[in-house]
Amino acid sequence: MFKKRSQQSVIDEWQHYQTQQAKASVNPTLQRFYQMPLTDPDMPLSEVPFVALDFETTGLDPRYNEIVSFGLVPFTLRGIRPSDGHYQVVKPNCVLSEESIAFHRITHSQVDTAPPLEKVLDELLGRLSGCIVVVHYQQIERPFLDLACRKLWGEHCLFPLIDTMAIEARWQRSGWKHRLKKTLGLQPVSIRLDDSRRRYGLPSYSAHHAKVDAMATAELFLAQVARHYSPTTAIGQLWD
């Protein structure tokens, strides 16, 4: 068995990557993004400006699927302001299936009049800049955003973020109870957004809307901090 790498090495890697990108980046948008100094990893959570981000996509694989919409909601530990958030429908290159239209609760006319991703990527990065991004399940937002930037500008777009699903896994899928369940071959606790929220007494929303999910993710993060961490916890400890 290999030992899980330490959080300090995660922090070190991200700081190193940021410095490197700030120098190497050519595209003006990404340049601006990387020249904004990375949040001090020792900064207490109570002082960090966060932004919850959610992508709705046509599927799980960024190579074959596309972003349909994104929603983001800025917040701090003191509170979430949903009306300060942002929501954008994006026109994909492929034709959207009826199922996917229905699933995302987006209408055809919304899609038809929506701008393509390249038109709004700039704005999206502007809104993320200077904030710590919070997502639920980073395997969507991170690779989709990265690939979009590579396709468009030929450069990577990666940054430290907080994954509420990873936090949930850390607390729900460790310890003797989890090991016992595993030994017995039982289903592990679900760490999907809605199931996770229920454990913190959070209400269920009609999901599959990027901004509702962003708001739901922000709430879940507040609940996780209230239960497992403290306002003085250093932000770097939660980076993924």
């Binding site: 509170g79 959070l202 507040l222």
Partner: peptide
């Protein structure tokens, strides 16, 4: 609604 701020207490 436009001015609601959401907070959480355990």
């Amino acid at each position: 609604v436009g001015n609601v701020e959401i907070t959480y207490f355990k």
